[in-house]
Write a protein that binds this DNA or RNA. Structure first.
Length: 440
DNA sequence: TCTGGGGTCCTAGGACCC
DNA sequence: TCTGGGGTCCTAGGACCC
């Protein structure tokens, strides 16, 4: 039998902000999306005050009255805090599947085996283990966490939802009797995999709880819905259908809303150049290479009175690449083919697609070891390519150590930069901003 | 004035093949 | 009057997740 624990950080972004501001304990904190657009995280105190996803410009005026503390998002900080939490979770399983920035599945099946060999029951043992996680993670990282335990990922997820509403932040549904009771009290809308379109369809069938859903015939569900919902029903019954190994990533997207609407191609080019270079860097970190890419732009869809235009330009690489210069040049060429004057652009991005492993890309080799497209003006013989990759390694390393290195195409004065008015310091990744502790 | 960003999977239907 | 059967590949659109 399988045993999964889902550890999920409580109000993760808001909690990250609170760690370094003990004076904010007990106060409502919200974190805004990029460009200070809308609310994407709320501390427990803020949840009754502000709805999730509320546009900031609409609630800004009330914020002061409500005593809201507001932060712009700081993903450098959250990424580093996430890493610490995930490392801590490694205490209890060698198999930690990081599912998102704030949650991870732990395979605890080894524990079951061990108890079985000892001839001891699993229930108490799992409860003790879960309690240890819920206590240790905040002590080591400052981030509170809830833990749900179940025989499938869907049930662990469901148990986690229940845990979030409990004082002890812990709930398990391994026991059949407890599971049945939990499912009967669990509204179908909260089940993992039931979204806004599926919910009314299930409701029309008279289903109200997770238990009702679990009672359906999986094959009938497959006929009426799809194999996805069939698996959902099976998972609710304790039959694990989700793969243990997450598949390799297939695409990378880097996109932003601009701080202001842009009409000048030269300004937009700087943004796309930055997205392209960032995408290439992510590729190298994943040890992967892209076969193709798409550059896209968009006007402001919240301003329907303005002319709208959402162009996309797709291009392929001669062979899969993680080369910043190659991706940058391709992106700018694609942009020039797609750009039309006369529109005010608000968003843009690049999507790197059909990713393969770096080794596979290397093995593919050129049919002719020379420049494939003279218009591209980039030396692609294997020696030039290798020397550029060596250079990038050094650049990536220097950047990770805090250096500020960029391509000229990214520009220095950047009109596209999103606004970020309430951003807190990078407490854990910037030597200048290390928090000081006073003993008084 | 002001509304995020980044992913995955499945299905249906068309094009094309023998 | 009568119009097969089986397969692959690709894409668009729909659905979900955090």
């Amino acid at each position: 039998m399988k045993i999964y624990a889902l550890a999920d950080c409580n109000s993760f972004f808001a909690s990250c902000e609170k760690v370094f501001r003990p004076d904010w304990a007990g106060k409502p904190v919200v974190v805004l999306s990029n460009n200070d657009g809308c609310v994407i995280a709320r501390s427990a105190e803020a949840k009754p005050l502000v709805p999730m996803g509320a546009p900031w410009f609409r609630i800004k005026d009330q914020a002061e009255k409500l005593g809201l503390i507001v932060r712009s998002s700081n993903f450098v900080l959250y990424g580093d805090m996430s890493r610490r939490v995930m490392e801590t979770l490694g205490q209890w399983s060698v198999d930690v599947e990081v599912y998102s920035i704030d949650e991870a599945f732990l395979d605890l099946s080894w524990r079951y085996q061990r108890q079985l060999e000892k001839g001891k029951p699993i229930g108490r043992d799992l409860a003790a283990l879960g309690r240890e996680m819920v206590e240790t993670v905040p002590r080591w990282t400052g981030i509170p966490v809830s833990v749900g335990i179940g025989p499938t990922k869907t049930l662990a997820k469901l148990a986690n939802r229940i845990a979030k509403g409990r004082r002890d932040r812990l709930f398990g549904v391994m026991n059949r009797r407890i599971r049945e009771k939990a499912l009967k009290n669990f509204p179908i809308a909260g089940v993992w995999g039931v979204g806004r379109r599926l919910l009314p369809r299930f409701e029309r069938l008279g289903l109200k709880t997770a238990w009702d859903l679990s009672r359906l015939d999986p094959l009938a569900v497959r006929r009426e819905f799809s194999v996805v919902q069939e698996r959902l029903v099976r998972e609710l019954n304790g039959e694990a259908c989700w793969a243990d190994e997450p598949p390799e990533q297939k695409s990378i997207q880097v996109s932003r809303s601009f701080g202001e609407m842009l009409t000048e191609p030269a300004e937009i080019e700087k943004a796309l150049a930055t997205f392209a270079v960032q995408g290439a860097k992510r590729l190298r970190r994943l040890n992967r290479a892209a076969s193709a890419a798409a550059v896209w732009l968009g006007t402001n869809r919240f301003r329907p009175e303005l002319p709208q235009y959402f162009p996309t330009a797709v291009f392929g690489f001669y062979r899969p690449t993680a080369d910043s210069v190659e991706i940058l040049k391709g992106a700018l060429a694609a942009f020039r083919s797609a750009f039309k004057p006369g529109y005010a652009y608000k968003r843009g991005g690049i999507c790197l697609m059909n990713l393969v492993s770096a080794e596979a890309a290397e093995a593919q080799g050129y049919l002719f070891d020379e420049e494939p497209d003279p218009a591209f003006s980039l030396r692609t013989d294997s020696r030039s390519r290798r020397s550029r990759m060596t250079l990038y390694q050094e650049v990536d390393r220097a950047e990770n150590a805090g250096a500020n290195i960029f391509f000229a195409a990214e520009g220095t004065d950047r009109a596209w930069l999103p606004s970020s008015r309430y951003v807190s310091p990078c407490w854990t990744t910037d030597l200048e901003r290390l928090p000081t502790v006073r003993a008084d």
